[in-house]
Design a protein around this nucleic acid. Structure first.
Length: 468
DNA sequence: ATGTCC
């Protein structure tokens, strides 16, 4: 028996040595060369049944090799992206299209859509909707898992709250910024902190304290809490509101450090699981849902989603309590999350990364900038958009570009023109850094109906790197 | 988005 004969059978590298070693043992046991070659062909064809015997090492090596090859093949991108519809293509930069094209080449992708506020993000573009089969992409959800909106419509006229009082309330009852939590004596409790889910994974147990410390707060970047006037053009029986103008509170917050650490942990895990994934798609690495890792992400992601809404919950409860009022209406929606959704009779995983769920009849909130109107919308359940809409106006200038291109003076002039009082806020969040919300709304009339409009008056955000 | 470390 020699290496040449074994190589001829198609064994490679390490397997050649292992096959040779096993063949030698079989020769000693008295088998002929042809009998041994037959056995080796058998191991090749079906290594699993040879585990534990004289061919154990060889069989194990072949099985490992097969797994690597299968993983590699299952990571291969399609040669061309699946087609996907785009709303407001004239508002979307080429980079977002390029990112969506890569996403639609993933072997797990089944359908997708681009919303009119789309712009470049990590992995999937912001404003991207992606339906996959039996897989979830951490960067298809985003770093701020469960990032969401909440609106409270109060039984007061907009003029009932003076600017100075609104400022004082926001200063007392909201907290903004990376790493920030309420001071211990002002910290509140919430049912989400008492869920059994925190014990389901070591990672969640580890992050529980951070979640407790940061409950009821808002983050940095585009997160905000603002008082303004909500205008309902026509009485709406479902909303239970008469037409008119109301004082309202609108907030944008997420899952804070807790969600960010969940996102980073599973993004790393997903990338480790797909070492041969094409570099262009590296940030779109996924977790199969039928694996322990995939299930763990699903559990953690949904907890982060509930935690983010709990933050809004406390923000709105504190401010309503301080005003001594009970809201007439409260609406909320997550816009960074993945959902199980039936599509053409099949259960798919629909990722919305900066996209508002817009199933038929579903209420949603699409904010503009700090100085522009936001909209209460009702979804139309458009199947081509996978029942989605934009999550806001969307950036037209990146953060750095905004800081370079805009002067404090012109931002302040914009705020003055719109009668906005701003606490905190950075140049990178200037209204001029965003697309015109009116244009974005006009591009999605087949995705949502506009029910009401919210105009901000007193806005609180984190103090950015470049203050306004 | 995040005490900016995978």
């Amino acid at each position: 028996m020699n290496g040449k004969q074994i190589t001829k059978l198609g064994f490679e590298r390490k397997a050649i040595g292992l096959a040779l070693a096993a063949a030698t043992l079989r020769e000693r046991a008295g088998l002929s060369r042809d009998e041994i070659l037959d056995e080796l062909r058998g191991v090749q064809a079906n290594p699993d049944v040879f585990l534990g015997g004289v061919y154990d090492d060889l069989a194990a090596d072949l099985i490992a090799l097969r797994a690597v090859q299968e993983a590699r093949a299952s990571s291969d991108l399609r040669p061309a992206p699946l087609p996907y519809p785009v709303w407001g293509a004239d508002l979307i930069d080429p980079g977002a299209h390029t990112q969506m094209d890569v996403a639609m080449r993933l072997p797990i992708s089944r359908a997708g859509a681009l919303m009119p506020d789309a712009h470049v993000g990590y992995g999937l573009p912001i404003g991207g909707v992606l339906a996959t089969e039996n897989a979830v992409i951490p960067y298809g959800v985003g770093v701020d898992i469960g990032c969401s909106m909440m609106l409270s419509v109060l039984p007061l006229r907009p003029g009932a709250l003076k600017t100075e009082e609104a400022k004082a309330l926001l200063m007392r009852h909201t907290r903004f910024g990376a790493g920030i939590g309420f001071e211990k004596r002002d910290r509140e409790d919430h049912a989400v902190l008492h869920e059994d889910t925190w014990d389901a994974l070591p990672l969640l147990g580890h992050l529980h304290d951070k979640a407790i410390n940061q409950i009821g707060t808002s983050g940095s970047g585009n997160h905000f809490a603002e008082f303004g006037s909500f205008t309902l053009a026509a009485a709406d029986t479902e909303l239970g509101l008469e037409a008119g103008e109301y004082l309202a509170l609108l907030s944008h917050s997420g899952s804070r450090g807790f969600g960010a650490q969940v996102a980073n942990h599973f993004t790393r895990l997903a990338q480790d699981l797909h070492p041969t994934l094409d570099k262009s798609a590296q940030k779109l690495a996924w977790l199969p849902l039928d694996t322990e890792e995939g299930q763990a992400y699903w559990t953690a992601m949904n907890l982060a989603g509930r935690y983010a809404l709990a933050n809004h919950d406390l923000i709105h409860a504190r401010l309503a309590r301080a005003l001594g009022e009970t809201p007439l209406l409260r609406v909320s929606n997550s816009h960074n999350l993945a959902w199980k959704q039936q599509i053409d009779g099949k259960e798919l995983i629909v990722h919305r990364k900066g996209a508002t769920p817009a199933a038929a009849g579903q209420l949603g909130l699409i904010p503009g900038s700090m100085a522009d109107p936001g909209f209460l919308v009702r979804g139309r359940g458009n199947p081509a958009a996978l029942a989605s809409a934009s999550h806001g106006a969307g950036r037209q200038l990146g953060r750095k570009a905004a800081i370079n291109a805009l002067a404090k003076k012109e931002v302040q002039a914009y705020l003055d023109r719109h009668g906005i009082t701003l606490i905190g806020g950075g140049i990178d969040e200037a209204p001029q850094a965003y697309k015109r919300i009116e244009d974005v709304i006009a591009r999605q009339t087949d995705l949502v109906d506009v029910l009401g409009q919210f105009m901000p008056k007193v806005v609180r955000m984190d103090t950015g790197n470049e203050d306004v």
